[in-house]
Design a protein around this nucleic acid. Structure first.
Lengths: 147, 147
DNA sequence: AAGTCAAAGGTCAGGAAAGGTCAAAGCTTA
DNA sequence: TAAGCTTTGACCTTTCCTGACCTTTGACTT
């Protein structure tokens, strides 16, 4: 029960919870060297353990001065993120309805807001590819989490 | 009454109750090797004996560094399981009475239920082998834990 | 300003190491 | 013998980890 992935996860979690931080920044290569592993292993852990569904957002920049920033998201925003993640690749009306009414149930959307979204997708049915509709719905939701 | 499945069950139960732990972690392949059986047999025992209804939760992870974690859920079902395990191989009336009244004391059997069981064994005395009576009593008790 | 370079981080396929499943054969017992 | 547990083995899925190769970014050159 202590493979590399766990060690890396604990290292990061330790920095986050131990120091009561809402975020942390690290250099991928540095950490890899410190923990004696391949840099890609850090990426692996980030993508499997620090997912949006688990309440994290990972941002990064490449090139000189590159970095990886890991943020933990507070509860409410998490609900939006989870909702965005339940949007399927080919969102049929039922899926859209599930997502919207779920948000409404969590009181993350007012009645008027949710009705607005419903109408929006009803009225634009067949206008874009399903993948495009998915992208739009996700973005709409994530946008909401900023207000 | 000591086939592989029982041995495995007792091994795990021993670790749990003997060391007063609320959980234990094991490697499926390791344990299989130690007990000289097929790994899938461990899975079999876990899925048949360490069920939620009997007060356990089993979690696992595959792949490198995989493991199996067995947790006992504090509470009621466990009492049934313990009772079933105190049934001796040759259950004389005294043993049966001890088991039943113990369950009654723990309020796991109503007065009517325990009387039902008492009568049942009284009325069938000498009908089967003692081993068979033991098997029946255990099953009765475990069945109760499912409700 | 444009081009070049070195220094990040990202991706992905593939091998290895677990554990999971399931059908079928083997036992036990009524 | 029928019913119901046990066991096993063949095959599947998941998770981990690395290395080769790709892309992005900032700094330096010209």
């Amino acid at each position: 029960m202590s493979n590399l992935a766990d060690i890396i996860e604990n290292y990061i979690l330790g920095k986050l919870t131990g120091e009561q931080r809402q975020f942390m920044i690290l250099r991928r290569n540095e950490l890899a060297e410190e923990l004696n592993c391949a840099p890609s292993q850090i990426s692996y852990v980030l993508s499997t353990r620090f997912t949006a569904n688990r309440g994290f957002v990972v941002e990064s920049r490449r090139g000189a001065g590159g970095f990886v920033r890991i943020l933990r998201i507070p509860g409410q925003q998490l609900i939006y993120l989870k909702a965005a993640n339940t949007v399927t690749e080919d969102p049929r009306p039922e899926n859209i309805e599930v997502v919207i009414s779920n948000l409404e149930n969590h009181q993350m959307l007012s009645g008027r807001e949710s009705e607005l979204m419903r109408q929006f997708f009803r009225l634009t049915e067949g206008h874009w590819s399903l993948a495009e509709r998915a992208r739009i719905l996700r973005k709409l939701i994530l946008r909401l989490s900023d207000f």
